[in-house]
């Protein structure tokens, strides 16, 4: 079997440490004791983090995780399948309003509301994916751009959904018997859902679905010739990607506690796209890194005031100039350098 890999992962091959002896070892997410140690340490760090930070920083970190989640989902579409979306904010908005109405209007339990938000967005993703069967590149980007703008316009003009003049308040829900009132509770909710979805993304990309997506990215005609059902896998990519954005939207609704259509504009779509590319196309950690970095810049540099957009743009340009493969590409290069260090 041929395993098609996007470029950055090839950096892993070579180096005596990475010799793989079996298929199981090849497919393992975590390799060796050092890998497990890192995972355990990271998990422990994420678990104790909210107890070390003040509520404000827990809020910020939670917001960053939500954005990283959108980026991971978008990366499945852009980085793995090679389709573009300039309207991801539409899915994000559908998820946010879906979860909010699930919780407030229909009084659904939290997991149901979140899943509903994701599935609602996924359904929209499926529909947007249909034109992708005929269109590609910039032509497809217009469809997605239009979708994002249409969602915004519908929200602004549909008071029953958007809450009209007052907007839509989302009180902190309860997860079963536990009310999620504190910042930490919401952090753990977001982190839990986030880790689950990121793990799912890892598994998805290693499965036949991921391989089909990559094949489509490399050449959809060739993929079709080798038996990949384009219709199924392209729409699936849109659906899954939208699902991530939808769930993230639902989490954002819970975190911020208030929704207003103006929060969901084209500018957000662009920044989602920037996260994926700056982080690293076609890798899961790339989406996470990009989401965290692009999301964090406004918080890190908020004291710059009116200089912020300028600095923001310069950072994006600098990353792309220095490392066209994104942050994750740079990380791989650094790691490889250290692994073979004395040589």
């Amino acid at each position: 079997m041929i395993i098609i890999r996007p470029w950055p992962q090839q950096g892993r091959i070579g180096g005596a440490m990475d010799l793989r002896r079996s298929y199981r070892e090849e497919m393992a997410l975590v390799r060796g004791w050092s890998g497990w140690l890192a995972v355990i340490a990271l998990t422990a760090a994420l678990a104790v983090l909210p107890f070390l930070l003040s509520g404000y920083l827990v809020y910020v970190v939670t917001h960053l995780v939500i954005q990283a989640l959108v980026a991971v989902g978008l990366n499945l579409l852009v980085g793995y399948t090679g389709q573009i979306s300039l309207g991801h904010v539409g899915f994000f908005a559908i998820g946010a309003y879906g979860a909010a109405h699930g919780l407030v209007t229909f009084q659904l339990p939290l997991p149901v509301a979140l899943a509903g938000a994701g599935l609602g967005a996924a359904a929209a993703g499926y529909l947007v994916g249909l034109p992708a069967l005929r269109l590609s590149g910039p032509y497809l980007s217009i469809v997605t751009l239009g979708f994002g703008i249409a969602v915004h316009q519908v929200l602004t003009n549909w008071p029953a959904v958007s809450g009209g003049r007052i907007g839509l308040f989302v009180p902190r829900p309860a997860l079963g018997p536990w009310p999620l009132t504190g910042d930490r509770a919401v952090y753990f909710l977001v982190l839990g859902v986030g880790l689950l979805l990121i793990l799912a993304a890892y598994n998805l990309t290693r499965s036949h679905v991921g391989r089909a997506w990559i094949a489509i990215r490399e050449s959809d005609l060739a993929a079709q010739a080798t038996g990949v059902n384009l219709r199924r896998y392209k729409t699936l990519a849109f659906g899954v990607s939208a699902f991530y954005a939808g769930v993230a939207g639902g989490l954002a609704a819970i975190l911020i506690g208030y929704l207003e259509p103006q929060m969901f504009t084209f500018v957000e779509s662009v920044s989602f796209l920037a996260m994926v590319v700056v982080g690293g196309l076609g890798t899961i950690p790339g989406g996470i890194l990009g989401g965290l970095l692009i999301g964090a810049i406004p918080y890190l540099f908020s004291s710059l005031r009116q200089w912020l957009p300028l600095v923001f743009g310069l950072i994006i340009m600098a990353v792309m100039i220095v490392e066209p493969w994104g942050l994750y590409g740079r990380w791989l290069k650094i790691r490889r350098y250290f692994k073979s260090w004395p040589l």
Binding site: W307, L308, P309, G313, I316, M317, M320, I321
Partner: peptide, 12 residues
């Protein structure tokens, strides 16, 4: 994305 960054720089 480079052009996106450039557009941010210009408007900024």
């Amino acid at each position: 994305v480079l052009t996106l960054g450039f557009s941010q720089v210009l408007s900024g």
